[in-house]
Simulated assay, not measured.
Amino acid sequence: MNKRTLLKGAAAAFVLSAGAVFADGHEPTKVGFVYVGPVGDGGWTYEHDQGRLAVEAEFGDKVETVFQESVPEGADAERVMTQMALGGADIIFTTSFGYMDPTINVAKKFPEVKFEHATGYKRAENVSTYSARFYEGRAVQGHIAGKMTKSNKIGYIASFPIPEVIRGINAAYIHAKRVNPDVEFNIVWAYTWFDPAKEADAATALIEQGADVILQHTDSTAPLAAAEKVEGVIGFGQASDMAEFKPSPRVSSIIDNWAPYYIDRVRAVMDGTWESTDTWDGIAPGMVEIGEITDAVPADVKAEAEALRDAMAAGEYHPFTGPLKKQDGSDWLADGEVADDGTLAGMNFYVEGLTGDIPN
């Protein structure tokens, strides 16, 4: 019998999951997942949990998965990881940027356990890092947004001022501006990954300020629900398809496809080939997918967006290709020059044309 256990508290960690043993005496590989939001968030955590379910489907009774949802970044995360490791986890996926230091701290105490940290940059002998090139999807969204806005005002709900989020803002703005020189971005920092009330308030405020396109780097469907209330406002699915809002206001989406990565890394633990690595994949390998572009998008704009997606998939185009300047007017990329991964990984500046400061 394939076991799936939700850890309700530290004391209960893995207690419920004990007992599955093969006829030859070997226990199934135990795989833990630590989530920053609820599995029903409809976005980021939902897609990570789809990856967990894919692991179960791939390996059946050879694996046993457990997860803890809505774990705050900080001491609580360290406690949950510790309990998973004490409970016998062979590999633990920690799925939020703020879990970086807790992951490193716990990994030091459990050198035989493999850890995989999403979106971070600190590694160890038993800690790998992995992320997706979400900015590729933001480029497609920016193109559609720039073409479809009638007010020339685009609202962007940002979570935290980390390079991942800043990259997304820049990529969306660059591609909106290229097709619509009059476009303006208004950025609201929500300082949360998942808070439907805050996200809805941010979307409503942006709409009241004239934005008729809402982009988001937060995890719930609340911004789309707010957009749905106002005729003519469109938005995009974040991290998952958010298909319940198709064909409008959700006109497309970025889908995070973690399943192949999770399956590969669990298999590596099972066959003894796991090594500490850093993975940063995008549209080409399928870690980032562009959801259906609906008929609410004009046919020519849809064709252009699909061509942009396909060019990135083929390696023929990079979203950060010069000429580009920084917000202060200084040169960044010369004509035809492509940004290097090191700069993108540590991005802490806006490109020329964006207004406002990046918070500390």
Rank of each mutant, 00 (worst) to 15 (best):
59 F>G: 06
125 E>M: 12
305 A>K: 09
183 V>Y: 02
60 G>D: 05
8 K>G: 15
227 A>M: 03
292 E>K: 09
96 S>N: 14
15 V>M: 12
107 A>G: 05
71 V>N: 05
165 V>C: 03
148 M>Y: 01
65 T>F: 08
4 R>M: 12
358 I>Q: 00
3 K>H: 15
44 W>T: 07
102 P>D: 02
91 I>S: 08
39 V>G: 09
17 S>E: 10
24 D>S: 06
102 P>G: 09
313 A>E: 13
293 I>N: 03
157 I>K: 06
266 V>N: 00
185 F>M: 04
139 A>Q: 06
35 Y>W: 14
335 D>K: 03
315 G>I: 08
104 I>S: 09
111 P>T: 01
322 G>K: 07
85 A>W: 05
159 S>Q: 13
272 G>P: 02
230 V>N: 06
230 V>R: 02
3 K>P: 10
331 D>Y: 11
242 M>W: 14
20 A>T: 11
80 V>T: 07
117 H>T: 07
259 A>T: 04
43 G>I: 15
253 S>D: 11
155 G>Y: 04
309 R>F: 13
61 D>R: 11
200 A>N: 05
223 P>I: 00
150 K>D: 06
178 R>D: 11
298 P>L: 08
357 D>A: 14
92 I>F: 01
352 E>D: 08
211 A>M: 13
335 D>C: 01
79 R>E: 14
204 T>Q: 11
21 V>G: 04
234 I>H: 08
196 P>F: 00
127 V>P: 03
313 A>F: 12
344 L>W: 02
309 R>C: 13
357 D>M: 09
68 Q>G: 15
247 P>V: 00
196 P>C: 00
181 P>I: 01
211 A>L: 10
180 N>Y: 01
18 A>E: 12
313 A>C: 08
169 I>E: 07
229 K>Q: 15
317 Y>H: 13
124 A>P: 10
235 G>R: 00
296 A>V: 06
223 P>T: 01
246 K>L: 13
